[in-house]
């Protein structure tokens, strides 16, 4: 860890002021990713602004019947909140699929969004990495890339976003509330994270002077027909090879509305509106699921070790859609895949 300065923000405005005045400063809340990266010398902030004392730990109903989740609500509290369990079980399930109970107790809602990739080379400062050191090259292309992205990649970066929670948030069309010097704004989840393009060092569209204050969930939670299916190399405490969040609104066997988001396959939680549209208005049949999967994966491309992810994602999408349609969501404790 480098010799950073430690400060505490007294309120949101103070936090914004502090971050705006020092481009090399970082907010710290749960610490589960940032402290890890600091020990690896990947993150070397000049200053840590401790935001854990800000009053952002509430979960409240919004006027439109949705839910507003404070940025500092710990992941475990969020997963087990009665409103989440009753109305947004997809989100709860995704959170419980990630990390470990200890980490979920620490990690904050806002911090979860800002997790950095788990790419081997991003973490190894002896190797080139465009995300860590722009212009140095991407070691994963032509290197060890079993965990890497198959969608939305660029010649500069094929890293994946590691979050499970965000995959569910993408499917639920959450919004991210952020406050900066120019005030508060609401960012659609799909617009929050970025694809690597030629600026892989940027993970999100959060501005340098902004702090995430809350996540807003719309009223529709797909509590009846949903699933979060995570496929990984061991049965718990591992990042996803591929994960699939599904929310369906089914009436009389016909899908009225469909949400389908993938984790472990791209630099951001991956949604494909076209695939969802193909499901909407159609019966919940395997044939339609196959068509949706094909649509999602049409542009998928492997880099060698991760070629299998394309087929794994296809099969995973079929299974997850079937689980959701049947109303038999994946349990995160029972490891048998339903």
């Amino acid at each position: 860890m480098n010799n950073f300065e430690y400060t505490r923000a007294s309120d949101v405005a103070d936090a914004v002021r502090r971050i705006a005045s020092d481009p090399a400063a970082k907010f710290v809340a749960g610490g589960t990713n940032l402290i890890d990266l600091m020990k690896e010398n990947v993150a070397r902030p000049s200053r840590l602004i401790d935001i854990t004392h800000l009053p952002l730990d509430q979960i409240d109903e919004t006027q439109d019947g949705g839910l507003r989740i404070g940025a500092l609500v710990p992941n475990s509290d969020l997963a087990q909140h009665p409103q989440i369990e009753a109305r947004y079980p997809l989100l709860g399930s995704a959170i419980l699929a990630g990390a470990s109970p200890q980490l979920r107790n620490m990690a904050s809602t806002g911090g979860n969004l800002l997790q950095r990739t788990r790419c081997l080379y991003f973490y190894d400062t002896t190797t080139p990495c465009n995300k860590r050191e722009p212009g140095s090259g991407c070691s994963a292309i032509g290197g060890i890339n079993r965990m890497h992205a198959i969608l939305g990649t660029s010649e500069h970066c094929i890293a994946t976003h590691p979050s499970d929670m965000c995959v569910a948030l993408a499917a639920l069309e959450a919004r991210v509330l952020a406050t900066g010097r120019s005030g508060e704004r609401s960012i659609a989840f799909a617009e929050f994270h970025r694809l690597p393009g030629d600026t892989p060092q940027l993970d999100s569209n959060l501005r340098a002077d902004e702090i995430i204050t809350a996540i807003e969930l719309p009223p529709e939670g797909f509590a009846k027909n949903y699933t979060y299916l995570k496929i990984r190399d061991r049965l718990s405490y591992a990042f996803a090879l591929v994960s699939i969040a599904v929310g369906l609104d089914i009436e009389g066997g016909t899908i009225k509305e469909a949400r389908l988001a993938l984790g472990g396959v791209a630099h951001k939680p991956w949604r494909n509106r076209e695939a969802e549209a193909r499901l909407e208005g159609a019966p919940a049949t395997r044939e339609n699921f196959v068509r949706a999967a094909e649509t999602v994966l049409r542009e998928a491309r492997g880099f060698g070790h991760n070629d299998f992810k394309i087929e794994l994602a296809r099969r995973g999408i079929l299974r997850a859609l079937a689980q959701a349609a049947r109303g038999t969501p994946q349990s995160q404790a029972d490891k048998r895949i339903r």
């Binding site: 749960g30 589960t32 890890d36 109970p101 107790n105 620490m106």
Partner: peptide
């Protein structure tokens, strides 16, 4: 009262 990984938090926090 909650279990956490003490390696990933700063004592000062």
């Amino acid at each position: 009262g909650r279990r956490i990984n003490s390696c990933l938090t700063l004592a000062v926090m």
